[in-house]
């Protein structure tokens, strides 16, 4: 048997720790690089008009570039579209998701609930591009056209499993004594859930909703086949509509509009990071 010297073993020990620290620290590099690049290239584009004006046409943008002026216009059409579609998706997904999550927490042992639980995992893991195809088949084809409704259906399907999971998990970690105390006072199951358990689970569920919103707000692929995009500010829900990530994709593909990429990305990135940090804060506060 070969025996290693103690000094050698201690050296390896230190080496391993050093390598772990260095490699772990390296994972922060992409985050800093991405935020840095987007901030650096995008901050001077953020202005009042960037948020209030719709995207310029390619012709306008070309003329401006030719004249050596900055490209006019902004991403207002995308912001309006994102807000409309996300709003509709949240309004439907939150109540249904919570009810479904409560069902799973209440009946964790039944066969049906186990199946539903597996399907929730399945839906959560389904690639977003497939949600896009599905919504195209379900909504765009029967409605004979792209629309904000279709876009919000896609976002709804993506948010649903996230809200179901966070509700289920939060309800399951509530102490059993809470439910017993409610029932001991003669409340029926429905009232104890609505008046005692759900309020107590509010923090966890709210965090879940925030994270779900931040997950889907940057989704591009499912919106490409459902909302399509539109260069005007539009409020009708049965017509094609734009969204911030869709605009980024458009800018990326249109050489005339490329200078608008970074402002739009910065807006999206800051919003998503803000949602994430808020969610984390609420979760921490709620856990303590």
């Amino acid at each position: 048997m070969q025996k290693k010297k103690l000094s050698q073993r201690l050296f390896i020990d230190r080496l391993v720790k050093g390598v772990v620290c260095v490699l772990a620290a390296l994972t922060a590099v992409p985050l800093i690089a991405i935020i840095g690049e987007v901030l650096w290239k995008g901050y001077d584009q953020l202005s009042w008009s960037f948020f209030t004006e719709p995207t310029p046409t390619a012709y306008k943008a070309m003329m401006a570039t030719a004249a050596g002026e900055p490209i006019p216009g902004g991403i207002a059409n995308g912001i309006v579209g994102t807000v409309i579609m996300l709003g509709m998706a949240v309004v439907i997904a939150v109540p249904i998701g919570i009810l479904c999550g409560v069902y799973l927490a209440e009946h964790s042992k039944s066969r049906f609930a186990k199946t539903v639980s597996y399907l929730t995992d399945l839906l959560q893991g389904t690639p977003s591009v497939i949600i896009g195809i599905i919504t195209y088949i379900w909504v765009v084809v029967p409605m004979k056209g792209y629309s904000a409704i279709a876009g919000s259906v896609a976002l709804f399907i993506m948010m649903l499993p996230l809200i179901v999971r966070s509700t289920e998990e939060t309800m399951k970690i509530l102490p059993a004594s809470l439910k017993e105390a409610g029932l001991a006072l003669g409340g029926n199951n429905a009232r104890v859930i609505l008046k005692v358990q759900l309020p107590a689970a509010f923090g966890g569920i709210f965090t879940g909703v925030l994270l779900a919103v931040s997950r889907v707000i940057g989704e591009t692929a499912p919106l490409m086949f459902t909302a399509l995009g539109c260069s005007m500010i539009r409020f009708s829900i049965d017509k094609p509509i734009s969204a911030v990530p869709l605009l980024i994709w458009e800018f990326f593909n249109d050489p005339n509009l490329q200078s608008l990429i970074w402002g739009a990305s910065l807006f999206l990135l800051l919003f998503v990071l803000f949602l994430n940090l808020t969610a984390k804060k609420i979760a921490n506060k709620w856990n303590s």
């Binding site: 940057g218 990326f252 949602l275």
Partner: peptide, 17 residues
């Protein structure tokens, strides 16, 4: 926190970067 923020960045921004 850093890794969870990395997970939150939209994929289109990763693409741009």
């Amino acid at each position: 926190t850093i890794t969870s923020l990395l997970a939150g960045i939209p994929s289109i921004i990763y693409g741009l970067w």
